[in-house]
Design a protein around this nucleic acid. Structure first.
Length: 449
RNA sequence: GGCUCUAUCGUCUAACGGUUAGGACAUAGCCUUCUCAAGGCUAGAAUCGCGGUUCGAUUCCGCGUAGAGUCACCA
């Protein structure tokens, strides 16, 4: 289906500031953004803040911060606020009432808070048909809707009416929104026809789903539904954008790691999947790691250092440690986990351990002591000024091969780390340096009798 | 329940009506290794069911089935 989007088109992103920026909302915002950028169309930002009870400034700020963080270059300086256009709604309401297309209706008050009078649209009761860019032709019979309510009073339009008026006033030509809007579309089309608005082109983007295929919810996924969570957890926004683009859409080739520009260039709304997609967090993690690998060293260093405690601040050491850390993290908050698990501690201070840990499974205490002495001796032969893990490996490896690699390498590594699991001894030696390595070996030897 | 939408490996997805149904994540195994991580290689894994149309259906149509969404004086 032709989407007819060009540089004269107007798209929109209209969140209501009644909650934190939802990841599903970010997905539709992104799809709008890809389209706007690709075709040079406008993307207007609107705040649907008519619900005064639930709308909050903090949510508005959260949404704006999220848009910026994701790297969407949208003009956020003067959003169209529904609360600033009440006069406009009233004008249209009065117009269609006077034309007999809507009317003030007397209501029976059943519940508390119900109005005795509301405004209803005179529903022609026809079948509404529209072509959705993603879903295809949709036919819905509006008869059962009856004369539905469009405003609580002449100055209080309800959502559907406000949206239609806003889109018309803003010159919106393409509405790309979440799938939940699909069923709202026919009644909005009816309102459009009543006020004499032109019909925009629709595209309904499928949901992001929970594991059980229900709509992604805070109830099931907690904080994971909020964009701010990903920032907090140290995901890279580029990775999130790449991931979100890939849920429900796929480029022509098999390349999945794509820059924003590449996504924009190849994005095609007609190829968006019709069904929802379960949020695959493992894949997101993998994508993030791919982006991490490509990150400039300086940036990596500063992000990681900012997550290390004060006592691990030795710059030279952290620089040496960088590849080791990078191998073990997918997101920056994994650094926090490493710190908590004590996986970094032994790089900065001497480890504490029981001597039994030093002994390789097929070895004895005596043998271990002898082997460590041997290691110490050999390491002593490597010149101070060319002391690196590789140099040590050159001299130690032949011995390890002769005596048994487990016999030599396990106690060496354990003496340096005090851990069953750690990077290999040469990496440790490289990071620790000659003096510290020697000291730790001596301590280990002295533990053994 | 009415209405609407959806249906390819566990997950995200490719495939003008003609492919040994492709890729990625995850999983398993192997390699590399003293351990862990990373990396490399390999493997298993799918067209929801039944009918039709067609020389030929993952693809088109119908009916089932399953799932989701929606049925406000919320947005």
């Amino acid at each position: 289906m032709k989407n007819n989007i060009d540089e004269n088109s107007v798209l929109r992103f209209p969140p209501s500031p009644t909650g934190n920026f939802h990841i599903g909302n970010a997905k539709t915002a992104l799809f709008n953004y890809f389209l706007a950028k690709k075709y040079g169309a406008k993307l207007k930002f609107r705040l649907e803040d008519t619900d005064k009870e639930r709308s909050k400034k903090e949510y508005e700020d959260d949404i704006i911060a999220g848009i910026k963080w994701l790297g969407m270059d949208i003009d956020l300086s003067s959003p169209y606020r529904q609360t600033e256009h009440s006069g406009t709604y009233q004008k249209y309401l009065e117009k269609i009432i006077s034309e007999g297309k809507a009317y003030v209706s007397k209501e029976e008050v059943v519940e508390e808070g119900q109005r005795a009078e509301v405004i209803r649209l005179k529903n022609p009761g026809k079948e509404v048909v529209f072509n959705d860019l993603i879903k295809g032709e949709i036919k819905i019979d509006t008869k059962e809707l009856g004369d539905f309510v469009i405003a609580k009073s002449i100055s209080e339009p309800i959502y559907h009416f406000a949206v239609v008026v806003d889109d018309f006033e803003m010159g919106v030509t393409h509405i790309v929104r979440g799938e939940d809007g699909l069923y709202n579309t026919p009644r909005q089309i009816l309102i459009q026809e009543a006020i004499g608005a032109t019909r925009p082109v629709y595209a309904h983007v499928p949901f992001l789903l929970n594991e059980d295929r229900s709509k992604m919810s805070k109830r099931q996924l907690g904080e994971m539904v909020s964009v701010s969570y990903y920032k907090k957890m140290g995901y890279l926004p580029e990775a999130l954008v790449n991931f979100l683009a890939l849920t429900g859409w796929h480029p022509d080739g098999e390349k999945e790691i794509m820059s924003l520009d590449e996504i924009i260039a190849s994005f095609d709304i007609s190829k968006v999947q019709k069904g929802g997609a379960i949020f695959n967090k493992e894949k997101l993690l993998w994508i993030n790691k791919e982006y991490l690998k490509k990150l400039p060293r300086e940036r990596l260093l500063s992000e990681i250092r900012s997550r290390l405690p004060e006592k691990y601040s030795d710059l030279e050491k952290v620089e040496k440690l960088l590849p080791t850390i990078l191998d073990r993290i997918s997101i920056f908050s994994d650094v926090d986990k490493m710190v908590e698990a004590g996986e970094l501690k032994y790089f900065f201070e001497k480890p504490e351990y029981e001597k039994a840990g030093l002994i390789w499974k097929t070895s004895s205490e005596d043998e271990t002591k002898e082997n460590l002495k041997k290691v110490l001796e050999v390491i002593g032969l490597v010149d101070d000024f060319e002391f690196t893990g590789d140099k040590v490996k050159e001299v130690l490896w032949p011995i390890a091969e002769k005596v048994g690699k487990g016999q030599i390498l396990w106690p060496t590594r354990f003496a340096l780390s005090g851990k069953d699991k750690s990077p290999d001894p040469f990496t440790l030696i490289d990071i620790l340096g000659k003096k510290e390595t020697t000291e730790r070996l001596v301590l280990a030897i002295n533990k053994l009798t």
